[in-house]
Design a protein around this nucleic acid. Sequence first.
DNA 1: AATCTTCGCAACCGCCGGAGC
DNA 2: GGCTCCGGCGGTTGCGAAGAT
Length: 278
Amino acid sequence: MGRPPCCDNGVGVKKGPWTPEEDIVLVSYIQQHGPGNWRSVPENTGLMRCSKSCRLRWTNYLRPGIKRGNFTPHEEGIIIHLQALLGNKWAAIASYLPLRTDNDIKNYWNTHLKKKVKRLQTQPANSFQTTPSNAVTSPNFYSPSSTQHNLQSMQAMNYPNTTTCSSAPSSESATVSNLFQTWMGSSPATTANRKITMQEFQDQDAAAASIVCKDQIVAGDNKSSSSLQMVMEPPVMTGSSTATFSLLEDWLLDDMPGQAMDGLMGISAGCCADPIMF
DNA sequence: AATCTTCGCAACCGCCGGAGC
DNA sequence: GGCTCCGGCGGTTGCGAAGAT
């Protein structure tokens, strides 16, 4: 006996775009009670909406701290990397871009990046060498065997502070988490609420951009998730705990031709000031 | 200016896994 | 162990906006 659709029993359930009034009702309710227990939201607010619709509206649109539109070349690069690693695991990818929703990333991939990647994959190989900024979409990078090889290589490598690798990751997602932790040069992950702050900055003169990573113990963080949180912060130059994004790329793409790698670096470097020419 | 086509995004749909009973 | 409920996820759709003709 299958479970009926969640909104089948809802006579008069409203569908379609949300009105500003509905948004206000939903936001004010969540401000009072917090997100969660979505089943009770329509009942308690009087919204003629399915609980799923309420949750989706909150997580994809109303939730504070959402960045909308204008994906930066750097974000594009991250999405492309992670999509190649994880496939269409949008929620997992979104966890590495905390200002973006999975829906947003999924839409952006489907409407922009997928076409760009496909287009470039059909280009002659030598075109990647002549246009370094395109190298991110080198066929090598999207080769499953290459990706698998890189994942295995990452685990095999004796990188410092890779303590989390000793406990075999249960999923590719965990592997990528380990990768990010290692890449960021962090100390072994603690089980306490831990906030990793990614400070993305752009150096226009040097055409270099890096991600500065700081580990912060977040006391009293009311987020229920114990997973790593990465929050983009305004550009701050720090001298110590810096690691360039290209290091991660280096791990992922260690079997790429040197020329292509040079171009790939541009994704996280010069391209931030100069849009990717897909 | 009007019509047609393409694009982008918000929202919906169906399925799955975990929790509770 | 089986059933139901709920939250979450990924795929897809529908519609308005923008661009092309």
